[in-house]
Nucleic acid binder design. Structure first.
Lengths: 228, 228
DNA sequence: GGTGAGTACCATGCCAAGATGGTACTATTT
DNA sequence: AAATAGTACCATCTTGGCATGGTACTCACC
């Protein structure tokens, strides 16, 4: 089987040389391209020299986090698996790297683990390094909570207060005429509200709509007090 | 150094026995608790027998994904690191597991990697297994995009169309009187709109507000056409 | 045949939010 | 001193969304 072709983008010449030599010394890895500056990478991409299996990309290039944007370009253009290199573990960089399509985030000083990470990335069986994983888990939980809030918000924007009130009574099992009586409004008003809400949600059954609203927690009072 | 104390929650008696024996045969691991049903775990927690370093938790218990909720309870109550066990790789379960505070998600059939995963979890240097990592990366990208959309939406809800229009002209460098002239309104209207927006954003400079709006992409036309 | 749910419209009244412009200031810069 | 930006109010008018109720149906069920 052919060697895994590795690109290295790293602005520190010493690191670039050292890393390149270290990886080339591995029996199954071949460094096929090295660059110190983003332009060099973009030129290589433009010339169609897209022979990378795995790309090692330093995040900080010439003092700015240019590696992140570059990672996205390389990933899209070549389909290669990108591993970000960094000297420190910085949350925001970790998140932005994964957003940009990177497959892992490795600390430079732990370069001994790089060959393993490269092999895993190449085989599409790449875990996320321990440092990055810790941050990812935290962020993931935060984002999932946010996602739920987002859904609830969209729902609240869609359903008016009186529609919601009706759904709650439907959910409690009241019939339309009972609801009309209870709220001292015409049965027509009830039918209209429910009809509106069903249209907006693209549903055909008020029971179903009520269930959804309940599952989303839309019936909870936001005045802080329970309903006794 | 003391052994790593492992709990196993697994409703298949054969698996439970096999796994327990396998882990106990490791020199540095000690299975200190086994359970086949959630109740048994809750009892143990209630009795304060919280001596787990790492908990292996089967997701499917008696045919339902009860392990996920249980994972959250155990994680909160004992501070132990929870690794979910499963027979298949199912996206939704993976995501819900991490939401519930699990630290990894392992396929049962690959039990040879469990001792390593347990040691990593215990040492708080746990990567995310390759199978879960792939799904996490995809979901993470989706969630990050969503987060941005969320921010933009909150902004749009806060700023009215005419306020936004003014900010755009401010951003292009027009003075307040120039803007008034251009939009054929009084200078008072301009001042009012800008003042409103600054209050709402908690800022003191219209330049700053304009920059933020631009960075959020609020000036982009949503009619699909560019501005020539 | 009556009752309840759902569908498709329409009309009316109301109100909060937004857009507009006003008075009257202060602070900064040129 | 003049121009510009910002702050703190207030008044008016318009509009869109919402709540309410109406007519006129269909469909399903017992």
């Amino acid at each position: 089987m052919a060697d895994i072709r590795v690109w290295i983008v790293e602005d520190d010449p010493d690191w670039l040389r050292g890393l390149s030599g270290y990886l080339d010394s591995q029996p199954d890895l071949a460094v096929t391209f090295r660059a110190e500056r983003p332009d060099a990478v973009r030129e290589a991409l433009a010339e169609g020299g897209a022979d990378a299996d795995v790309v090692l990309m330093d995040i900080m290039l010439q003092g700015v986090p240019a590696g992140i944007e570059l990672a996205e370009e390389v990933s899209v253009a070549t389909g290669a698996r990108v591993i970000m290199l960094t000297s420190m573990e910085e949350k925001e960089f970790i998140f932005r790297s994964f957003q940009a399509g990177a497959i892992d985030y490795q600390i430079k000083s732990e370069y001994e683990s790089l060959p393993g990470a490269i092999r895993a990335a190449s085989a599409r069986r790449a875990p996320i390094s321990p440092e990055a994983a810790e941050r990812m888990r935290e962020e993931f939980r935060r984002l999932k909570k946010l996602e739920r809030e987002f859904e609830v918000r969209k729902m609240r924007d869609l359903i008016t207060p009186s529609e919601l009130q009706l759904l709650e009574l439907v959910d409690r099992g009241y019939s339309q005429s009972q609801i009309a009586e209870r709220l001292v409004v015409s049965i027509r008003t009830v039918k209209n509200h429910i009809n509106h809400v069903l249209k907006k949600l693209g549903l055909t059954g008020s029971k179903e709509a009520a269930r959804i609203a309940r599952d989303m927690g839309l019936f909870e009072r936001e005045d802080g007090k329970g309903q006794g």
